[in-house]
């Protein structure tokens, strides 16, 4: 499967993996740093979209246009549809439960 990966393609694969790592790291930092459920929902799902997106793009590049590569493209699509839906479900549940979003000056919760 991984027989001949040229240097340019290898560089792209590494770059995409690092970008994926970077955005996942941002997402994690955000979940720890941000003050309330709404702002955490932002970063938990959204930064992660790109984190998973870039990682899967790296996988697709490494695997080539067959089997695994094609499936990872489908996975990206799946994540891009389900991620915002899940984020919306969390935010909506929080809103319906009467949680008022954190604003400047509030305590962290």
């Amino acid at each position: 499967m991984i027989d001949a990966i040229g240097p340019a393609r290898l560089a792209l694969i590494v770059a995409f993996s690092l970008l994926g790592l970077f955005f996942t790291f941002v997402s994690m930092t955000g979940v720890i740093r941000l003050p309330d459920v709404y702002s955490r929902a932002h970063t938990a799902s959204q930064a992660d979209t790109l984190g998973a997106g870039f990682t899967l793009a790296a996988v697709a590049l490494a695997a080539g246009w067959q089997g695994v590569g094609f499936k990872s493209v489908l996975l990206v699509f799946f994540i891009f549809v389900t991620n915002p839906t899940a984020a919306h479900a969390i935010a909506r549940a929080a809103f319906e439960a009467g949680i008022v979003p954190w604003t400047e000056g509030d305590e962290r919760r």
């Binding site: 941000l34 709404y38 702002s39 929902a41 932002h42 970063t43 799902s45 959204q46 930064a47 979209t49 891009f80 549809v81 991620n83 915002p84 839906t85 984020a87 919306h88 935010a91 909506r92 929080a94 809103f95 979003p101």
Partner: peptide
């Protein structure tokens, strides 16, 4: 539209009501 808004970081759709979208912005 709501999913696109949510996918774009910094904005999060909270509720669709009365023809309005309630959007949380970071």
């Amino acid at each position: 539209l709501a999913n696109s808004i949510t996918l774009t970081p910094g904005t999060l759709t909270v509720r669709a009501r009365d023809g309005n979208l309630y959007v949380h912005s970071l």
